[in-house]
Design a protein around this nucleic acid. Sequence first.
DNA 1: GTCTATAACACGATAGAC
DNA 2: GTCTATCGTGTTATAGAC
Lengths: 218, 218
Amino acid sequence: MNPPRHETAKTPSTKERILAAAARVFADKGVDAATLREITDAAGTNLASVNYHFGSKDELVVAALTACLRPINQARLRQLEACRDRHAPAPPPLCDVVEALIRPMVTLTRGLDGSRIPIRILLQLRSLPRPETNAVMAAEFDQVHERFIEALQECRPTMTRQQLALRYDFARGAAMQILGDMDPLARELPNLQAHDAGLDEEQLIEQLVSFVVAGFNA
Amino acid sequence: MNPPRHETAKTPSTKERILAAAARVFADKGVDAATLREITDAAGTNLASVNYHFGSKDELVVAALTACLRPINQARLRQLEACRDRHAPAPPPLCDVVEALIRPMVTLTRGLDGSRIPIRILLQLRSLPRPETNAVMAAEFDQVHERFIEALQECRPTMTRQQLALRYDFARGAAMQILGDMDPLARELPNLQAHDAGLDEEQLIEQLVSFVVAGFNA
DNA sequence: GTCTATAACACGATAGAC
DNA sequence: GTCTATCGTGTTATAGAC
């Protein structure tokens, strides 16, 4: 049950290095186009180690995507529960629920170089739905969406569940869009200095939350 | 200058069949993972015909993506100009500008089977930016974005260009998100009966426009 | 656990008959 | 213009030494 591992060691194990390298290469080149050679080179190991640790490329995909996406959703649920507890038994304010959705997407998806690996991976899983990756998405997101829509239902009891789900979808899309555009690899858009320091994360969260809350109140 | 072609013929030429099949296969499997064999099989022709008509896979990609995306942007610019003319010299109402942005995305991207090929391709080009596809995006979208942001600036002269560009980005993201979720291939989300007839296109446009306009006014 | 070498296969591109 | 056959390359997966 407890392998002789250095849980808190500075130097990550080969398995962990492969997971991290896989997430980056999948985000950069796409899950399909990414080759195991590229991943193992980036991880400083060799081709055969992937099959030793994960069994196949498909199983590495599932493991890497799960490891990449889970922290964001854990933080969202934590922040949602915190704001519900803070206001219980009254329903939490809408803006707090929206912020619990958006803040972790903004703060936890940026790498040291400004890249947005989880965002690019999420966009990719949405644009190229495949059974194996859809299973990861369902496992990681369905419960989160359910909880957020329940919370929104408490905030706005007169709106239908479908309308709330629709606007919840709009909100996620707005956030995904701007975060995708802020990635250094993204194409620079006119009038939007997204890559530059012209837009810090707190301002962005504020802009997104106010836009979405106004949309919900429309 | 005028090759002996049947412009309005019912049976499309081999070149046109390849373009249509390529768009579908690119959307389904991804540009990288799509194989020329799959495309030529779907088009009812053979492998060599692609190189005869287009030269290489890369050139087919550029041609197919351009053919797929251009009609949407042409319709957007047409509708934007129409609403500007209708109200000139006064600035057009914000909701009309937003509708010019969104309506063609909703009405012109649905295939006969309900699939949303241009939407999935757009999501794909955003999630996997590559120099060749970025060039297509720049050619097809930069001028459109510029014109829309100019129109928004007329509607809301007190807002900065960067803030308008930011909310314009949110608006496009919201629309992309729901349209992606409405594709039959997409994963079904809880509480959102997007695939079913529970949401017709006019209602969706109305919901999107009201959400976005409220967000702009926040 | 790690690595080298290789097997088995699919891809894009092309030559050349028709 | 269309098609068949094939070449060269790159891929995943695996066998087997260390």
